[in-house]
Every structure is written in structure tokens, then in C-alpha cells.
């Protein structure tokens, strides 16, 4: 088991390294590093000085080494706009994005599993078919448009929910969170729902497929033959089997959810790192962009690793095999 974890860790480190190479090439080979790393407002002399200071006159491999060395120390450059370390800027915005993404994932579980279970247990009922038809929209509707419609209906027409911002926040562990206040929660509801739409559809379909696959299995029939209540058969026996693939997929989708928060944050003016990256791209604040990309790649790889670990915890078959 430990050797297996160790192997996966080494693998993860290699992927991170590969991604740093890609980002480095993107910045230094495809793009013009002088333009990317030096403020566009700088004059000729300043530029020349910066080129030497940044080591841009050195061979590429040396530059990469320096980039990596700095990155390891958490130094990914300074924002032109805020004149602050890019990584710190990202880190400040990260809680807002994280709470949005986590809430979205929770929503997709809370809504997707019951709906999918219903559609799976009653595949031919009107409601079951409607749920499936509806899930197609979750996949194909452009999420920014759905966000606009949510605002139009619930904020503008009905006036039930606030349309933008994080609302009131409260401090926990020195970080501001919206989910701790009523007002913050009200602000978070629409963006979280919007962000979770695709995931709801995904979880729903997985759950339905799992239910349809598992219900005819012998073990379900045997559980019923033991005299268990239908509730226990479905929610313990069947669910336990469905949960494993769902957890895996949700885990893997978490990275995408964080990435897609870019869109939702823009629609709802949610001050997370997605909003920051769009603003940064618009003003060409490239150190922030690089920091964001490295951050999200790192996040992705960490999540994949965690999901793999979780998978072995959840599924006794995998767990015992890997132990041997």
C-alpha cells in the first residue's frame, strides 16, 4: 500500500514537472517573455535592465531551472497591476472560488443523486423520462447564459435573490467565508447552482445508469429475499455500489468545476480567482496568469491523487488487492 502511494506520488510530481515545462514553453517560446513578464508600460532602458534581472539573456534550460527554483519557493513573479506577488493574489481569492466550487459539488450530489435514483428506479415513468430529458439541457446549455437567465428571473423579475457579489462574509481561520452568513448564502445560491448544472446532469446520469445496472443484480434480489425493507435495499445495498464510481467522477470533476468557475464568477461578479484571471488576461497581467495556471494544474494533480486514494478506501476489492 505505501509503495503504491509512493509510486503515485512520484507519478504526480512528474506530471507537475511536465506542466511546468508546458507553461514555461508557452510563456518563453511561443509567447514573448519580455512582453509577458515585463510591464508593458516599461521604457526601453527599464526593459533592458529587466531582461538581465530576469535572466532572459541566459540559455533556455538555465531559465527553466530558475523558473522552477522560484516556483518551488512560491515565487511566480509580481503582478503588474497590483504590484504584489502573483501567488499571494491568487491565494487571497482562492477561498471564494473554493467555497463556490465545493457548494456546487455538494449541490450536484444533493440534487443529482435523488433525481438519478428516481429516474433509474422508474425509467419508464413520466417523471423519470422528464428528468432524463432535462439532464440533456444541463449538458448542452451554455452555462453563462443559464447564469444570466437565473439573474433575470430571480434577481431582476422576482427580486428574491441578490445578483452579484459575495454578500456578507464571516471570518473563520483568518479567512473570509460567505457560507457562514445568511446573506452570504443567499449570494452564493445562484452562482453555485449555475456552476453545478453540468455536474448535476453528470451525477444524475451516473446514478441512473448505476441504479439500472445494479437493480437486476442477484445481490439485490438476495437482499430482498432476506426480507430487507426496500429502503435499505436501495439506500444501503445499491447506493453503496453506485457511490464508488460517483465519488470518483465527482472528485475528478472538481478540477473542472474550479476551472469553470471562471465563467460563473464573471457572470455573478463573484470575487474569486476565476474573476481575477479574466481581469488579468484583459489587462495582460501575465505573472498572475502564469501563477493561476500553475496553481490550477497543481490543484488538478492533487485532486487526481486524492481521488485515487479515496477510491481504494471506498472499494474493498481494490483496497485489498493493493495491500498485497
Amino acid at each position: 500500500m505505501t509503495t503504491w502511494i509512493f509510486r503515485r506520488l512520484i507519478q504526480a510530481i512528474f506530471v507537475v514537472l511536465a506542466m511546468t515545462v508546458i507553461v514555461f514553453i508557452g510563456v518563453n517560446v511561443i509567447g514573448d517573455p519580455v512582453e509577458i513578464l515585463i510591464s508593458p508600460q516599461a521604457d526601453q532602458a527599464e526593459r533592458a535592465r529587466a531582461v538581465i534581472a530576469l535572466g532572459l539573456d541566459r540559455p533556455l534550460w538555465e531559465q527553466y531551472g530558475r523558473f522552477l527554483w522560484n516556483a518551488v519557493q512560491g515565487d511566480l513573479g509580481k503582478s503588474f497591476v497590483f504590484n504584489e506577488p502573483a501567488l499571494r493574489l491568487i491565494a487571497q481569492r482562492m477561498p471564494a472560488t473554493m467555497e463556490l466550487a465545493v457548494t456546487a459539488v455538494l449541490l450536484s450530489i444533493v440534487l443529482g443523486i435523488p433525481l438519478g435514483l428516481y429516474a433509474g428506479l422508474r425509467p419508464n415513468s413520466f417523471a423519470g423520462r422528464s428528468i432524463m430529458a432535462g439532464s440533456i439541457f444541463g449538458f448542452s446549455l451554455p452555462s453563462f447564459w443559464v447564469g444570466l437567465m437565473l439573474i433575470m428571473v430571480f434577481a431582476v423579475q422576482l427580486g428574491w435573490l441578490p445578483s452579484t457579489g459575495r454578500g456578507q462574509t464571516a471570518t473563520l481561520f483568518g479567512v473570509q467565508w460567505s457560507f457562514l452568513t445568511r446573506d452570504g448564502l443567499a449570494h452564493m445560491l445562484m452562482p453555485a447552482l449555475n456552476l453545478s448544472l453540468g455536474n448535476i446532469a453528470l451525477v444524475l446520469r451516473l446514478t441512473r445508469a448505476g441504479a439500472r445496472e445494479n437493480m437486476p443484480m442477484d445481490y439485490v434480489k438476495f437482499a430482498r429475499a432476506k426480507g430487507l425493507s426496500p429502503v435499505r435495499v436501495v439506500f444501503v445495498h445499491v447506493m453503496k455500489n453506485i457511490t464508488i464510481p460517483i465519488v470518483t467522477v465527482i472528485g475528478l470533476e472538481f478540477g473542472s468545476t474550479v476551472a469553470f468557475a471562471v465563467v460563473t464568477e464573471s457572470v455573478f461578479a463573484w470575487p474569486g480567482m476565476g474573476k481575477l484571471i479574466i481581469d488579468s488576461i484583459n489587462v495582460l497581467d501575465r505573472p498572475v496568469i502564469v501563477a493561476y495556471l500553475m496553481m490550477i494544474v497543481f490543484l488538478f494533480i492533487t485532486i487526481n491523487l486524492l481521488v485515487d486514494l479515496l477510491y481504494t478506501v471506498l472499494d474493498p476489492r481494490v483496497r485489498l488487492e493493493s495491500r498485497e
Binding site: 511561443i30 509577458i36 476551472a259 488576461i281 495556471l293
Partner: peptide
């Protein structure tokens, strides 16, 4: 986003 970030 990566591509647009690098290329504009």
C-alpha cells in the same frame, strides 16, 4: 484560457 493567455 491557457492559449488565449499566452497568445492574447
Amino acid at each position: 484560457l491557457m492559449i488565449l493567455a499566452v497568445l492574447g
